[in-house]
């Protein structure tokens, strides 16, 4: 099939999709007329029930906690699958990370980049930690905090310190952290079962003040483990891609 033919088939299909979509839209309540009962019910009861003022986190780590376990393992599996897909093939070898791409000398990171990376690393770690530990109060949580935490490691890499990046986040250790994060979430669920409660029941004391950092029981704890898992997964994923450009060469190049 030529690209031209493919484009025409696509445009015809798109016209059909648009027609059915607009037809379907005509029967739906319009934008702003939210009809569903679930969101309203949860908004009404979540703060009293979980002592978490961030209702989205309460949904993620409590009401829909079982889904979130699956979601976290999607990320876990993706990071593992990347390691499998990007494993060294037979004719590949690792080379010294200090030398540059075969035919192109990479300039060292400029002082401005190095300084910016140095200045931002500390605050980014604090920010990530803050986000991962405040799921119960504000629009944050383990997923957001984990990504921000991983950014701190990439800042170190950006400053040109590949060897330092690998020294403070060796693959084995990062994988162990990832496993602890993913396993911790599942283990919290199993602990509830061990106490004779349904899986992922919030068995910790909820605290008395809604929105306090110590409130909301397992929501805060799960968010912490998710933060560890997400940070480790992102460091692994980006680390794999970085290794591909820096270390792995085909054949005799």
């Amino acid at each position: 099939m030529t690209p031209g033919q493919r484009r025409w088939i696509f445009l015809a299909a798109l016209a059909g999709l648009a027609a059915f979509y607009l037809w379907g839209l005509a029967g739906l309540p319009g934008f702003g007329n939210y009809p569903g009962p679930y969101g309203d019910i949860i908004n009404r009861i979540a703060v009293a029930q979980t002592k978490a003022t961030g209702v989205v986190s309460a949904v993620n780590f409590e009401y829909r906690g079982f889904d979130t376990v699956g979601e976290e393992f999607i990320l876990f599996v993706a990071a593992s699958a990347m390691a499998v897909v990007l494993r060294h093939l037979r004719n590949e070898r690792e080379r010294d990370p200090r030398d540059a791409t075969a035919d192109w000398a990479v300039p060292p990171a400029s002082d401005a980049v190095r300084l910016a990376a140095l200045v931002f690393t500390g605050p980014v770690v604090v920010m990530g930690w803050f986000l991962a530990s405040h799921a119960q109060t504000s629009p944050s949580g383990g997923f957001q905090g984990g990504v921000v935490l991983a950014t701190a490691f990439f800042l170190i890499y950006l400053s040109g310190e590949y060897l330092l990046f690998r020294r403070i986040s060796p693959v084995d250790l990062t994988e162990a952290f990832e496993a602890v994060g993913a396993g911790g979430f599942a283990a919290i669920g199993v602990s509830a079962v061990a106490m004779g409660l349904p899986y992922l029941t919030n068995f910790l004391p909820l605290g008395t003040t809604p929105g306090a950092v110590s409130s909301s029981g397992t929501i805060a704890l799960i968010s912490f483990f998710v933060g560890v898992e997400v940070a480790a997964a992102f460091i692994l994923i980006v680390g794999e891609l970085v290794d591909q450009t820096l270390l792995v060469r085909q054949g005799d190049h």
Binding site: G39, V56, N60, E71
Partner: peptide
């Protein structure tokens, strides 16, 4: 849907779809 500094009965948007959007991003 964050009731940290507003009363709980304030009308808020659906938190369930927001949680789903988070899943979507991940």
């Amino acid at each position: 849907p964050y009731f940290f500094d507003i009363p709980v009965h304030t009308p808020a948007v659906d938190p369930v779809v927001q949680a789903l959007a988070l899943t979507d991003v991940v």
